[in-house]
Design a protein around this nucleic acid. Structure first.
Lengths: 119, 119
DNA sequence: GGAAACGTCAACCAAATGGTTGAATATCAG
DNA sequence: CTGATATTCAACCATTTGGTTGACGTTTCC
């Protein structure tokens, strides 16, 4: 079971943790390197990483003495889906639809234009 | 300025508050009516509503002795945008696309099944 | 083997969170 | 005016959170 939305949102509520996620977006990182830019003890960062890990937002794998941190998109996607299911999202759905078309253009589906709602 | 992501995500981290948002999705509600389904004091719900309000997720307008609570999509959309900007989102686009199809079912396109992820 | 690097653990602390109860404040209805 | 309804306020409490420091266990390197 993926971790509860509680954990995901709680993990995302901290700016340090969001910054860490943004860093991991670029590449996997060792704990020490994650901690480097922050004005905070290594132990504190280690705790933040535990929180992110419990939320399923990252995974950690130890190789030798180095523990590598890796972004795990699924948890955040689940949170995003909860939001999507939320209603205000005509705009976002439309937007997602457009992104979908751009990203997957080669699928070649043809959307009959008569059914479109106004935008 | 819209409230910080900190506040939005923190507000979303509580299941009671998420349930309240889901209720407000259906319709605007008075505080007392929001509180009704919960096994919790009215004061507690009132506090939750303050949290949601500070996060910008709802607005409250007092008319007479009744304070009406209304969903405010912007804050959540901003959080969603933060997530979207995050990178992992081919998957979410797909999901949004499927939702789009469900909502607009009469389009009748055929989704290639190779892209599905298990949940 | 011994020292340095990597990371966590344990104890501690201050502040925030989520709940309670009871009193207080408005507003409406008769 | 009186009483009921709607909501918040204030004080309190237990738990969680986000940080610190110092000791500890591993792994690597010479």
């Amino acid at each position: 079971m993926t971790p509860a939305l509680d954990n995901v949102f709680a993990a995302l509520a901290d700016p340090t943790r969001r910054a860490i996620l943004a860093m991991l977006l670029e590449d996997d990182m060792a704990v020490t390197d994650v901690a480097a830019p922050f004005d905070m003890s290594l132990a504190a960062i280690s705790k933040h990483l535990v929180v992110l890990s419990n939320a399923g937002l990252i995974s950690q794998e130890k190789r030798g003495r180095v523990k590598w941190c890796k972004l795990e998109p699924d948890a955040m996607r689940e949170a995003s889906v909860w939001m999507q299911g939320f209603g205000q999202f005509e705009a976002v759905n439309l937007d997602a639809f457009e992104r979908f078309l751009e990203a997957e253009i080669q699928i070649g589906v043809d959307i009959p234009s008569g059914n479109e709602q106004d935008m």
